[in-house]
Nucleic acid binder design. Structure first.
Lengths: 131, 131
DNA sequence: AAATAATATCATCTTGCCATGATATTTGCC
DNA sequence: GGCAAATATCATGGCAAGATGATATTATTT
């Protein structure tokens, strides 16, 4: 019922990186060891986050990842966005065209829950989760 | 971020069946046509719901499916339960042992949302969604 | 009894996500 | 320049869920 495991990994990793000292580059190896996940898989995930403008990366010796912006401006929604399927299903019954205008039987009730969940991801920032 | 597509199908199908006249048996064919889904896949899904005691089925000519109990006692939680993975992940960061005693950084905030969602499925009944 | 209509069940194919491993590229250090 | 450390990238494998198709079983109708 929840987010994909890659999206979970992304949040966890970004949180770890954000907890390092300011301006320090954190290596994939270090993050993988800290949160206990496969190194190469994490590498791909962090790269995707860099492509999305959430992380900054430096290659070569001494390289690594750091936040591209302020932690208090970085919402969970932005972090998981690259890993969620494009067709965001909002209808509980899976109807393609469910909306306020043409609602499915569960629309009104489900909307309350879905909106709350969405709001959680859109308002919670990495800064709020640190330490 | 939501439930599996089979679980969605199950809710949709049960709702349709529940909207038929009392004591009428509804065929797989009829439900499949109504909600637009693959016939055999729906067949397997309805069979699983019958095994779970949610539907009653009759084989042979004139057979079909009907609710096994009252619609106002049938929660969405019971319907989706057979189709959700056994290991229900409650921790947003995917930590295996996240709980009130040993919380992850997101635990308290996420708990509020997760509990609300859970409550939605546990309290919403098929009767409340009819027509 | 035979035909028919329906569910029950099994075998298999497909697809997408998760994961692994290997290689390429860049950068800093000696 | 050469080596080592790190990210970037590609190719591939594994697995579970989704989906399809074929067959078995049961019950009704004729």
């Amino acid at each position: 019922m929840w987010i994909s495991s890659t999206a979970r990994l992304a949040i966890h990793a970004v949180l770890r990186i954000s907890e390092a000292e300011e301006h320090r580059l954190v290596s994939v190896e270090e993050v993988a060891a800290a949160i206990g996940c496969p190194r190469n898989y994490l590498s791909k995930t962090l790269y995707a986050l860099a492509q999305a403008g959430i992380l900054r990366s430096e290659r070569g010796r001494g390289g690594g990842f750091q936040l591209a912006g302020r932690a208090d401006r970085l919402t969970l929604a932005r972090i998981i966005e690259p890993f969620e399927p494009a067709a965001e299903r909002r209808c509980l019954l899976g109807r393609p065209m469910c909306g306020d205008a043409d609602p499915c039987p569960a629309h009104e009730r489900w909307k309350l829950v879905a909106e709350r969940t969405k709001a959680f991801f859109q308002t919670t920032t990495i800064a709020q989760l640190q330490r």
